[in-house]
Amino acid sequence: MKANSTRGKLIVVEGIDGSGKSTQIDLLNKWLLSIGKSVYFSEWNSSDLVKSTTRLAKREHMFTPTTFSLLQCTDFTDRWENRIMPMLKAGAIVLADRYAFTAFARDVARGVDPQWVRTLYSFAIQPDLVLYFRVPLDVAVERITSARSKIKFYEAGMDLGLSDNKITSFRLFQQRIVDEYDHMVDEYQFTVIDGTQPVQAQQKTVRAIVKKQLQGWQGLLTPLEAVRRNTRQSKAIATGLPDTIEGEPS
């Protein structure tokens, strides 16, 4: 993957269903906003362009591993071209709940060629930070089955015919995904987070890692911050004082 050459920062979370990554990125998002950062949040499979097609194909069980992979990549590309890339260029922090690695893990677990799916996403950049939430399978299954009434057909990998039982199929499918993720830890420099820790403890770790990543980096100012600085600068000019803005911690 190409390195990030934009002004922005790209931070992504990865992990199997029930690993707690969405909870963590949501908390991270709120924290970054509260400390005055320009943040854009993007979620896997959320492009309006593809939504109706995905819904139709899921309802009618029309997907094959290849069309599943291609349609999710279409979704990603739409978000990439219209949202993620422009936001990064503008200097925002882009938070992504799942990224190309989800495709590398899930689509390969479904049986597509690993090299082929990597080529599809070859335009995507290596994030500045990949937070991988690792949990034992039992913990994930327990969280998913207790929190939600029903595991969905494709989530359980029912299209693969691994088992007629949804829970069994889910376990077998997620195990394959975990195996793929584990291969990627070194390949794509994942930072592994222990997803069995209490939510608050994990968030503390996450914030510390992100803080370190953002050290010395000046992204796009929020409108409020921009106005505040402008006002101070005008005052400084008016009173003939030297400009003290540069190098000031944000």
Partner: peptide, 21 residues
């Protein structure tokens, strides 16, 4: 509303679906 890469992949999805099914 389609950008170039998005359009490529959407058409590829159509193509793959017809090829396989």
């Amino acid at each position: 509303t389609l950008n170039s890469m998005t359009m490529s992949l959407f058409y590829a999805t159509d193509f793959a679906d017809r090829l396989e099914n």
